[in-house]
Amino acid sequence: MEERIKTVLATYGRLPDPVESLGRGDDLYRAGLTSHASVNVMLGLEDEFDIEFPDSLLRKSTFESIGSIEDAVRSLTASSPLSA
């Protein structure tokens, strides 16, 4: 899952440095993720994992690191019978 998240980040995050250089807990906003790009990342994740982020997860903290994104995606795919 982490690899798929990194692919979405690399495609839509518009980060100045390669995604491979980021650790799970690194602050993505400090790494250059703008609020505009974070919305594109959300859309990319929704498509990649066939999920929809509920209102309660649509806040800055959900997208602040690869780890926090993975937690959010996991919490959404866990309830789906189609989850890989």
Binding site: E46, F53, P54, L58
Partner: peptide, 11 residues
């Protein structure tokens, strides 16, 4: 423009 983009994921 900001809101147009935010609304793409708003519920």
């Amino acid at each position: 423009t900001n809101n147009a983009q935010l609304l793409l994921v708003s519920r």
